[in-house]
Design a protein around this nucleic acid. Structure first.
Length: 277
DNA sequence: TATGGCCTGTAC
DNA sequence: GTACAGGCCATA
């Protein structure tokens, strides 16, 4: 599922192929994709793409007065129209709602394809203000010092540290894969209460999260099942994972089997020896 | 602060 | 047939 490294990979590719492109049409095929509508979708026609930005797991297409805020959630993909990974024929008809919106430009057409239809599109005037209103944390890569300070202050309370790490108001961009990996690297048990950690431990956890996400970007992200980049290719960071979806396999550090538990409703993977409570 | 709902494809 | 994948939001 796309987390910060996967979204950043898509952002870079989009920037490379679409920066300066002129938009012709934004066609909403599945109305449920569109949440916030501060701007009429018709107004993007004839405008050119100024920049492609990202904050956490949100992608932002900046068209001047309009900002298209895209969230891929679990199964969202952005692919060129006609790509082999898209269903065709009767299958495409059956799954037409999964073609959630289309973006036609003078450089071709792109499809937001989303099997489970959890993804969202918000049309807003000022994406950063919109994120701030929702309490989203600063981006840990774009604004590392501010995000670190924010994390030190907000990673508190009696919640499990894994839950806190997944809270986008505390550390934005971290999802289930990189939360488990950052906790492993910091040798923290995922159910440790956040407020028993001192500032040094919180800082180390933040650094581990940033580090593992940077390494993942260098490998174009992690594909476990659904994620594909803009060209339809998977990310290859999966082979460097230490714990995520490795339950029953041996820990690469101590050789003991990796365990799977559920923490706030999510599959959580850790080494009981390296990450003793 | 914790849970259920949103969704559908895949694996047992 | 059932469990599971899980980011985010609404609700209790």
């Amino acid at each position: 599922m796309p987390e910060l490294p996967e979204v950043e990979t898509i952002r870079r590719d989009l920037e490379e192929c679409l920066q300066g492109a002129e938009f012709r049409e934004l066609r909403i095929a599945d109305p449920s994709v569109l949440r916030e509508r501060q701007v009429d979708p018709a107004t993007i026609a004839g405008r050119s793409l100024r920049a492609v930005r990202r904050r956490g797991k949100y992608l932002v297409l900046d068209v001047g007065a309009t900002q298209l805020v895209i969230h891929l959630r679990m199964t969202g993909r952005i692919l060129p129209a006609g790509h082999a990974a898209l269903p065709v024929g009767a299958e495409a008809v059956r799954r037409r709602q999964q073609f959630r919106f289309r973006l036609a430009t003078d450089r071709g057409e792109w499809i937001f394809f989303d099997t489970r239809r959890f993804g969202t599109l918000d049309l807003v005037q000022d994406a950063d203000a919109w994120f701030d209103e929702r309490g989203l944390a600063p981006d840990p890569l774009l604004d590392q010092a501010a995000a670190r300070q924010w994390f030190l202050v907000h990673a508190a309370g009696g919640r499990a540290i894994k839950t806190v790490l997944l809270d986008q108001q505390v550390a934005c961009g971290v999802g289930n894969i990189y939360a488990d990996e950052a906790l492993f690297r910091t040798r923290l048990h995922p159910e440790t209460a956040a407020d028993v950690l001192d500032y040094a431990q919180r800082g180390a956890l933040f650094s581990a999260a940033v580090q593992v996400m940077k390494e993942a970007i260098a490998r174009r992200g992690t594909t476990t099942s659904d994620y594909l980049d803009l060209n339809g290719n998977p990310g290859v960071f999966r082979r460097y994972l230490n714990v995520y979806r490795r339950a029953g396999l041996n820990c690469r550090v101590c050789g003991q089997p990796i365990q799977r538990i559920v923490v706030s409703g999510r599959g959580t993977h850790y080494c009981p020896t390296c990450q003793a409570m």
